[in-house]
């Protein structure tokens, strides 16, 4: 934590160059170790619908209290046949340590491309999801420090969202928030997407209360939901803001939207 502090008292002398291990331990020994990780902040979000999936992420990249850049997208198209990714059918969002995120994206993309060249067809989302899990688990003892979410359309054309932890545990879900503001956004999603704690008024008392029936949300409502979730996260988390990147995958391909967020 002291690493991110601009406070000389916490940090020892402040060098103009960050990440200097300044202090020897009080008891005289020095830790011979360089910390290969950092947290670059940011947040991501994915929601699956009946015939679409939306992946979103803010575009801020931070280092401690500094904003490195206001535009560094976190959602990527995966497995197109060229570098333009025009015919990609899978989306990946990565948040956490940006360098690992970039490396993981490049790895998965090249694997999907190889698959496409060898089999002359794009990889299915469920196959790609499993492959991503094995890639991440291969690095079990030096993990990619990222929270990844994979999105696309399944064999039946329904929206699919797979979420991962840094060592490759994964599960298919209706919606998932990841990154710095995950704890702020996820409860909102539980309520608004999975209708948690929503009951039919007057349907009973106590345990007899009937839950509101779950149904997939229409696309325009989900887009508003995503924007609202990020507007709220920006308000309460300093590492989230600047821009909102939204990728919407449907039968007709992938559409990208960039919307402004507060820059403070």
């Amino acid at each position: 934590m002291a690493m991110f502090s601009q406070n000389p008292v916490l940090n020892g002398p402040n060098y103009s160059f960050a990440d200097v291990p300044v202090q020897d331990h009080v008891d005289g020994f020095r830790e011979h170790r360089f910390n290969p990780y950092t947290d670059n902040g940011g947040s991501t979000l994915a929601i699956a619908g009946k015939d679409f999936a939306i992946m979103a992420g803010d575009t801020r990249l931070t280092a401690g209290y500094s904003i490195n850049t206001r535009f560094s997208p976190k959602v990527f198209k995966i497995g197109g046949s060229t570098s333009t990714q025009d015919d990609a059918n899978i989306l990946l969002s990565v948040v956490g340590f940006a360098a690992d995120g970039e490396a993981l994206k490049e790895r998965l993309d090249s694997i999907c491309k190889m698959y496409r060249y060898r089999h002359n067809k794009p990889m299915s989302v469920s196959a790609c999801a499993k492959r991503l899990s094995t890639i991440m688990y291969q690095r079990r003892f030096f993990p990619y420090y990222v929270y990844a979410i994979l999105g696309g359309l399944d064999e039946d054309g329904a929206g699919a969202v797979y979420s991962y932890d840094p060592v490759g545990s994964y599960e298919r879900e209706q919606c998932r928030a990841g990154g710095a503001a995950a704890s702020l956004i996820m409860p909102f999603l539980d309520n608004q997407v999975n209708f948690k704690n929503q009951y039919i008024p007057g349907s009973g008392v106590g345990h007899a209360l009937q839950e509101r029936e779950r149904q997939p949300l229409p696309r325009d409502e989900v887009e508003v939901l995503v924007k609202d979730a990020f507007d709220s996260a920006v308000e309460r988390h300093i590492e989230v803001g600047d821009g909102l990147q939204m990728m919407i995958i449907t039968q007709n391909g992938i559409e990208e939207k960039i919307l402004p967020l507060k820059k403070d």
Partner: peptide
């Protein structure tokens, strides 16, 4: 940077220049 983190921006600065 030394961790392999990359970013682009219309203006950039390293070290104290960042602040």
């Amino acid at each position: 940077d030394l961790l392999g983190t990359t970013f682009t921006s219309p203006s950039l600065a390293t070290g104290y220049g960042e602040m």
